[in-house]
Design a protein around this nucleic acid. Structure first.
Lengths: 232, 232
DNA sequence: CCGATGCTTCGGGCCTTGCCGAAGCATCGG
DNA sequence: CCGATGCTTCGGCAAGGCCCGAAGCATCGG
């Protein structure tokens, strides 16, 4: 009974168009200020402030002060996962959940972007395909796992590996790509790959968006390391 | 933007204690009448009727008339999956989400029950353990898959097998058991095993509950087929 | 055909919640 | 030190939602 109440609390926090829009906007894993989120949701700052307080209370969103700004991000991978399930069941968006008004960045977003903490778009899907084709990773339905060979080769590249079956977050799982409608790689492995790609200068973020571009160096590295033919 | 609204609609449908309690009660996959659900949620029948209409509108619940009764069940595996995610994030229930007032059936429920369309409780967890130990199935984190050997042996037992990587539902996935706090087997394989167990007379449902008992025949068969030592 | 049963619709009371503008705090930049 | 900026709190309004009892439909059992 108590569990039903907690469910209701969380669900109610998501169950309002303005808050749902905010959560969707946070799904790329970046943090946003209250004012930005107000604009995204199409409401006045005071209203947004109230909504955000409620999302924080429901532990779906975490907030952090930096000077006179307050940055909001999803509370964690579980929250992202939950919202992702909802989006999927909501019938995946026809357009890749729009960033309103910021102009026609759709092409760039479709090509490559971050999805919470891993890579998505054609780049993410292509990378996942290459990893499966190369025998690094196997996928079946909603399951994915590293092969033994993959584990060894990721290690050799200096990519920190999720230990097998640690209790919390799955090491490796497929995540349905909004724009491509095919799976890319999420979970701890997806996050590790993404941060490695940033760290090595394979990709750069397009300032102020969640789009990323592949550098020439990255294009080369992705082909050499994973056999990824075209990466944008 | 439209996607945020649909999310909000679904979430709002879940975001009310009475409705959340109803959904939780439906999580074993059986259908319940409106009056039963009213009692579960602790509200009057007219109120429940309104709630159920809303859940149906949100496509979380499906209803079906049988004579003067109207049976409600979860709309499908995706809905079950979604609610399960919420429960998990809600911090798995201390008690196995209670069937109120129907008396002290907890012991039986903990021992063996259905969870949506597959087996749960000590029986379900033990079966999953045995399948992993016997090399039928492998599990890692939130991923699970049939081994080649397992696929062949399930087929030999006459259990209809999910084809690899069909698009909709995952063939095989772990599902955190409420009472045991360890995974049992869900997905299409879990459902196939469960219906096989009922069909072969390995288990019987305890009338009017979601508890099941293992028959002597079932105990024998489970040991012989899967090496499951004690099955209640 | 008639009463009992299951469910829904209707009407109305009550409370919650969304929304905004104005005003109050804090921080930054000069 | 002062104005601009980001955010929150406050007050008030309006809409929507939850809840119930009474009454209306349908179905079942005799």
């Amino acid at each position: 009974m108590v569990t039903a109440n907690r469910i209701a609390e969380m669900a109610a926090a998501m169950g309002e168009p303005a808050r749902a829009a905010m959560l969707a906007a946070l799904m790329d894993g970046r943090a946003m200020t209250a004012t930005e989120l107000a604009r995204v949701a199409g409401i006045a700052p005071p209203t947004a402030s109230g909504h955000l307080a409620r999302l924080v209370a429901a532990r779906l969103v975490a907030a952090e002060r930096h000077g006179r700004h307050r940055y909001h991000r999803l509370a964690g991978p579980e929250a992202a996962r939950l919202i992702e399930s909802m989006m999927q069941m909501a019938g995946a968006a026809p357009a890749p959940h729009a960033v309103p008004r910021f102009g026609p960045r759709d092409a760039a977003l479709r090509q490559a972007r971050t999805c919470y903490d891993h890579l998505a778009g054609r780049l993410g899907v292509g990378l996942a395909d290459a990893l499966v084709a190369g025998g690094w990773v196997a996928m079946e339905g909603e399951a994915a796992w590293m092969t033994e060979a993959g584990r060894a080769r990721f290690g050799a590249l200096g990519i920190p590996l999720p230990q097998a079956a640690r209790h919390g977050r799955p090491g490796c799982r497929p995540c349905l790509d909004w724009s491509e409608r095919r799976p890319h790689l999420a979970g701890r492995l997806g996050a590790a790959l993404c941060s490695h790609a940033f760290g090595q200068g394979w990709v750069h973020r397009v300032e102020g968006t969640r789009a990323v571009t592949v550098t020439p160096k990255g294009r080369l590295a992705l082909r050499e390391a994973f056999g990824l033919a075209e990466s944008g």
